[in-house]
Write a protein that binds this DNA or RNA. Structure first.
Lengths: 172, 172
DNA sequence: AATACTGATTGCAATTTGCAATCGGTTGAA
DNA sequence: TTCAACCGATTGCAAATTGCAATCAGTATT
């Protein structure tokens, strides 16, 4: 909300945009989880964001130019949030962030598989993913060749979960 | 300080490490500014960090394994802070963050020149820089061929500042 | 002996955070 | 037509965090 402008340093300004505990989490859920509605983000949030915080951050991210909001034709009260190009180009940063966290922090297997695949996929995979997001959120044309990056990541996640469940049940 | 562990997601855990307004600023000043002492960081901080915040964050970063502290032989009260490998591997993230900020945020010319060079240099430059940091902070062997990355970045920064000053004086 | 510098610590007011409850409106099924 | 579920928020409030200003005790310099 407040435009600090503590300094014109790129890293500082980036921190002023998402140097808090929730903004990037929301963007992560929109980018990787495909969430577009308030309730989806609220209930689907793994970390349990509160509704007032979510409302505040959505507003802030819109003011910063990272999101836009539009009416959902299917429901007069429903709003669809879309990523802007500014937010879509965070994909490489999120990929790096995930890769770093996977190495240095106590990540869980099922939640780090996405980061692992995204790291291995590298720039080509990031580019493809960003094109998919531009299609979804900005209506850009897009030739759909094969499964989407998000679907691939999601499938890998579910495979790990299934595997873990299996291992737990056979051990019991 | 508090170990939230809101979730085992790599991005979330990374945010719990430096998802605040100061931690990455401190690391930036250590990495790119070569700062090692409390007062250097306090007075050299462009954004004007307060001493209690600095003390708190240094402590926190040490607990998280990003920094270590050692006595300075030249002064019994002086402490030298060193980056750990965990912190040094943030270089690619900082490079991406700077590159993103340079595109989307109102950065100042003189402060974004470093980000620009670092982006152009790419992974090879980042690798060389990380090796220099390992030498400085971890005492790793290192063959010094040519000017250091930090010196290169610093020189470019000073050139822009000098150029700006010149332009201002001739215009007046 | 005086002064400046070292890495902090303390007091305190202001702000931010986030839980719980609630709001006014919309939708779809009974 | 009634009613419960759902929609995107908003409000009240206690707790935690933030950060400015002043200060600390020990060390080095002069």
């Amino acid at each position: 909300m407040s435009m600090d402008r503590r300094s014109g340093c790129p890293i500082n300004l980036s921190l002023e945009v998402f140097g808090d505990r929730w903004s990037l989490i929301i963007l992560r859920d929109m980018i990787f989880g495909g969430r577009r509605h308030f309730r989806e983000m609220l209930n689907g949030s793994m970390e349990g964001i509160a509704s007032n915080i979510l409302a505040d951050r959505l507003k802030r991210l819109m003011e910063l130019g990272m999101l836009t909001k539009a009416d959902d034709p299917s429901h007069k009260q429903k709003a669809i949030y879309s990523l802007t190009e500014m937010a879509i180009t965070l994909v490489p940063i999120l990929a790096h962030l995930g890769a770093w966290g996977r190495v240095w922090l106590p990540v869980s297997d099922e939640l780090s598989i996405r980061a692992e695949l995204l790291e291995k996929g590298g720039q080509p995979m990031w580019d493809k993913f960003m094109d998919e997001l531009r299609h979804e959120h900005l209506g850009m044309p897009f030739d759909t060749t094969g499964p989407s990056v998000r679907a691939t990541l999601q499938a890998a996640y579910e495979a790990v979960v299934a595997n873990k469940t299996l291992a737990a049940s056979t051990a019991a």
